[in-house]
Amino acid sequence: MLRYAGRRLFSLAVSLWVASLVIFLALEIVPGDPAAYMLGINAQEDTLAALREELGLNGSPMERYLAWIGGMFQGDFGTSYTYRTPVSEMIADRLWVSLPLALFALALSTLIAFPAGILAARNRGSVVDVAIMGGTQLGVAIPNFWFAMLMVLVFAINLRWFSAGGFPGWSEGIGPALKALTLPAIALALPQASILARVMRSALLDTLGEDYIRTARAKGLTQGQALRRHALRNALIPVLTIIGLQFSFLLAGAIIIENVFYLPGLGRLVFQAISARDLIVVESVVMLLVFAVIMVNFAVDIAYAWVDPRLRGRR
């Protein structure tokens, strides 16, 4: 188990390192002189020099990369050129919107998908199954930001149950904050729940066809007992994979959904940064999101070993 975790930890570190290289190359080396890029073509040479100095762009690429990485280890993401504030502070504020939103959506999608998938698998071929599968077919096909717009139209504009957008901040208490995140989280969760329910159903049907289910039935377990005691845990292995993948989609989706609801999250930040050509902010946000995705996949790998004893003994 420890050896397995250690190996995963090692590949986690390698992934993070290579990812940081890719991001650094794409956003600091490809544009040529980032300072010139940020200021536009009409910039004066002395303003350029000042900006380079300010952003620490004067060293060799190697030095800059090391400085960037070293800074991140200490929580220093550099200074935003447009806002003149430390990027880490800006990100920290926004993260408190985006991350809870993604987690909220993940929880919702899992809560919807598990019962739906299990119900459909247990009643394969029945009306229930057809209804659930039809519903997920729609859920997978619906663009989540459009669904969000429709919800705004119905629940905010017409019914006035929710506000159409904005975020009160966590200082106003958890209730109002969660309420502001509810519609966005539902919009995010719906397509993911549909995918997850389909995966859950087919994974369960696969495991229900396995020999050990027949063995269990021969021991006297009912169909339901065999499903609960044997099929579910085995089906969890493919389901975990999808949950891990989903988290990256949820983070990316959160960035888009924030636009619909005018939420002050990472999405708003990054789009403002793009239009302001603030590469430092873009770089930091992208690195942070990639970091989150890689960490979640690491967690999924560890969860595999928890579920599957065959992995624990392996290197």
Binding site: E210, D211, Y212, R214, T215, A216, A218, H230, R233, N234, V307, D308, P309, R310
Partner: peptide, 12 residues
């Protein structure tokens, strides 16, 4: 049954 390799739940 015939196939002992698959007749047991691998997680138990």
């Amino acid at each position: 049954f015939q196939e002992p390799m698959t007749a047991l739940n691998p997680l138990q």
